[in-house]
Design a protein around this nucleic acid. Structure first.
Lengths: 326, 326
DNA sequence: TTTGTTTTGTTAAACGTTTGACAATTTAAA
DNA sequence: TTTAAATTGTCAAACGTTTAACAAAACAAA
């Protein structure tokens, strides 16, 4: 692969001049510039970013740590992150951490070794100290990591409230919430809190079913079927849309009609759900805004590691009404 | 961030010795090793991969160029690629090229600049020459790129055959295929070829609807509705599952019953579809095998850039029977 | 012609590592 | 004790770039 020296020789100028052209500094005549550009094109030259970064330039690399990308929500989020960062001249190293703390730890070390400019973290199997000693700009999605790491999330609390209100407005009396296992330090727990608060105000009770995030859809489906067979509930809030799809599936099989016998509302409202399951009422997280905010904050931290940021940024959710709560 | 010299000082040894510990070469006593490891731990040291790579070591980075990751098929594929590569000590730079040739071109340059060890390419907006002059190990998914770049794909031809056979076996007489716009150099066109071949053998005719990949689901839905309103067809093969979902949606709205009035079969068979839409009959691409094969080939090329590889690797598809073709 | 300005070149150090050559020290075996 | 082997150290060059300091040309204007 061609180096800066090769270009210099071919263009008949000094290496310094080539570097000046690349970095556009010092005074240069049009003639040399074109000569150098021609040589660069001729040899299909790309400045070695390893060498540039080593010499102090930024790597223009951002690490993205998320549970995974096969889930439509994180898929869309990664796509949006990639899209926005690309326009700003950054590339991303994708780190699917799953539920695996060791993997997340390994990735953190790798990102340090690769001298990424910053990290967006949304998978949180690690405890706080491990994130604190990374010493890189970090922004967190939906999870409390440390004093100095800002959290961006949707308004989970209000989302929970909206869900409860919608089900009640649709006439449900016996409510059920199906949620992932309660995690420490996660603002997503507020979906439950907001939901509960609305019901408490009306002195209403509700049932709670926790299914670990890591459960397979089959297992989840089975637990849901068990639930539906009791036939005591007439309104369900699932704290993610995919689980809501499973409820629809099981209800269909059991001959339970939605919305006649059972009202249903989900959470996330990805493009995927809106396009392919517009029938589902859901709480839409503003993915674009969330990403815009995370990137804005991250770039500020990268520019100035001392800059003061809020500890939490909460973005509004939106109720998308489908036919499952009519 | 701590450097090798810092470690040397702290451990009271020479920089060379530290490097010897890191790279495990030369002869070393247990005592020094533990001293050095202790210092590395103490300072949370990570060897600067930029410097290492500059000195000739591999970057352990692989570029993944795909249309995008919000589509469940590519989402699952990326997840699988990431998973397998992580276990082999590689990280991935994710490049969503969409339908944008300029973006793909820019990414190709960036990957060269970053000195990635290799590339897996599955988005193909560029012509062959641009890929040829990259000069890095490349493996292609489902697209012809150049003489020297191996293609891995599922058996699209047989998939098309299976689809036709299933619809016929289910009793359909008036068949329709809905596919993305025909692309040059794409083995996926063989889905249509295989489909056609089965019908030709039985002297049967069929209708063809092409909808560009880039169309929004709403547009696609509209075109499908138009099609269904004619009510002349009783069997549809969609060359991707998401389009099949749209058919189901429109059919439901129009009161067309599946499978009573209309048989339906899709293509891809992602985990997502199998978990959340098991009712849909589909042709399953062996994503895991495809990825395993691509990575195997890529690593061989990385190890030995001269190694001889086949130009095409075709992996078998599988019919997943749901209730839409009963 | 002289003067000043613009452009280009030369040289060298630096980024953090790897690696080879060679010397010095420690340890173990004879 | 001598000898050999194992361990560690010193030194320096290299990877491909950036950047500063300074010198040398080329060019234009007075």
């Amino acid at each position: 692969m061609a180096t800066l020296d090769d270009i210099a020789k071919m263009a008949g100028v000094s290496p310094t001049t080539v570097s000046r052209v690349i970095n556009n500094y010092g005074s240069l005549s049009e003639k040399t510039k074109t000569k150098v550009f021609a040589a660069m094109k001729e040899l299909n030259y790309q400045p070695n970013s390893l060498a540039r970064s080593l010499k102090g330039k930024k790597t223009q690399l951002i690490g993205i740590i998320l549970p995974g990308v096969s889930n439509p929500f994180f898929g869309q989020m990664v796509q949006e992150i990639e899209d926005q960062l690309f326009k700003k001249g950054f590339r991303i190293i994708l780190c699917n951490a799953g539920n695996d703390a060791n993997k997340e730890r390994a990735y953190l070390r790798m990102l340090m070794a690769n001298r990424v400019d910053g990290i967006i973290a949304g998978a949180h199997n690690l405890n706080i100290e491990e994130y604190q000693k990374v010493g890189l700009p970090i922004i967190s999605f939906d999870r409390y990591l440390s004093e100095t790491i800002p959290i961006v999330s949707s308004d989970n609390y209000h989302g929970g409230q909206l869900a409860a209100q919608s089900l009640l407005a649709a006439g449900s009396k016996n409510l059920q919430i199906i949620t992932g296992a309660n995690r420490p330090n996660s603002p997503t727990n507020n979906r439950l809190v907001g939901f509960k608060e609305v019901l408490d105000q009306q002195s209403l009770d509700f049932k709670l079913l926790e299914i670990p995030f890591s459960s397979s859809p089959n297992i989840k489906g089975l637990k849901i079927r068990e639930l539906l067979l009791k036939k005591t509930i007439d309104g369900i809030f699932c704290t993610d849309d995919l689980t809501a799809l499973l409820v629809m599936q099981q209800a269909r099989e059991l001959g339970i009609r939605i919305p006649e016998d059972l009202k249903l509302i989900g959470y996330d409202g990805t493009d995927f759900i809106q396009n392919y399951h517009p029938e589902l009422t859901t709480i839409k997280q503003p993915i674009v805004d969330i990403v815009t905010m995370m990137i804005d904050l991250l770039l500020r931290r990268i520019d100035d590691s001392e800059c003061e940021l809020e500890s939490t940024y909460t973005l509004p959710v939106k109720l998308i009404t489908g036919v499952t709560t009519i």
